[in-house]
């Protein structure tokens, strides 16, 4: 007669083995998933670090370019004027039978000095457009747009709300926004082959919304992150904690950038 009853002891041992294997699998999966997560975190940190390095590089390069430009401006404009002034003073001489040259000399010197003052003012203005009294962001941008308007190659439409909020922007924010817009305009002129630029400012619930658009050829998406100018823009916007989106569509649909900046409370 065959014994039909199962050996319960074997069943219990098999049950224990099964549970043990399940727990081991659970722990191994846990290890695997946590290590995977850790790798991903490290990768993200590495990407962020590289991005910051690139931004720093862009900042240093643009600083050097700016210094270079100031040097050239000082040398070519102010330096030249002062040299010519020196030459005029050196050559100043009154002949015995000649009329008194002093009024003409004074006029010539004053003219050169005035031009040198204007050059210095221009250089200072380029360095920091907000150094002169009640001069605000909109005025600075209008000044920036004027020569482009006059060239009649690109039409710039500037729209902004008629309230004090834009004038009350702290200088650091206004300067950063000014530089970003200047860079965008520079990019449009240099690369976009555009005929029109639209720049709109809106204020909505303590949020400043800026839209910059042109009708040029647009830019490739990867260039949007790699170009030195774009990196400068990104770093300046990050510095003032502004959020931004870029539509870099190609095919003549232009370039579109939207910036959102939380306005500081006025207390």
């Amino acid at each position: 007669m065959q014994n039909l009853e199962d050996n319960y002891f074997i069943l219990i041992v098999m049950g224990m083995t099964g549970i043990c294997l399940l727990v081991i699998s659970f722990i191994l999966l846990q290890i695997r998933s946590q290590n995977k997560l850790l790798k991903q975190q490290k990768k993200i940190q590495e990407i962020e670090l590289n991005y910051r390095k690139e931004l720093l590089h862009a900042i240093i390069i643009s600083q050097e370019q700016e210094r270079n430009r100031i040097g050239i401006d000082l040398h070519d404009e102010v330096g030249t004027r002062l040299s010519s002034l020196r030459m005029i003073i050196e050559n100043f001489a009154a002949g015995p039978n000649m009329p008194d040259p002093t009024p003409a000399f004074k006029l010539q010197c004053k003219g050169i000095i005035d031009k040198a003052i204007a050059d210095v003012r221009d250089i200072a203005h380029n360095l920091s457009p907000f150094t002169t009294g009640a001069y605000g962001l909109i005025e600075a941008i209008e000044d920036l747009c004027d020569p482009i308007h006059q060239s009649e190659k690109i039409a710039i439409s500037l729209q902004y709300p008629e309230n004090d909020a834009l004038h009350r922007l702290p200088d650091t924010l206004a300067l950063a926004l000014y530089r970003v817009i200047a860079e965008l305009i520079h990019n449009t002129i240099k690369h976009a082959r555009a005929g029109e630029i639209t720049l709109t400012f809106e204020i909505n619930d303590h949020l400043l919304l800026i839209r910059y658009a042109d009708n040029g050829i647009g830019i490739k998406k990867d260039i949007g992150n790699k170009g030195m100018g774009m990196r400068n823009i990104a770093s300046r916007l990050e510095m003032i904690q502004a959020a931004y989106t870029m539509d870099t569509a190609e095919g003549g649909r232009g370039f579109d950038m939207q910036i959102k900046l939380p306005l500081p409370s006025t207390g």
Binding site: Y8, I19, C20
Partner: peptide, 17 residues
């Protein structure tokens, strides 16, 4: 976890065994 879950059946059936 390994100890308590693997010994669980043994704890239940120890009197039976």
């Amino acid at each position: 976890l390994l100890y308590f879950s693997s010994s669980f059946l043994l704890f239940i059936f120890s009197n039976f065994i």
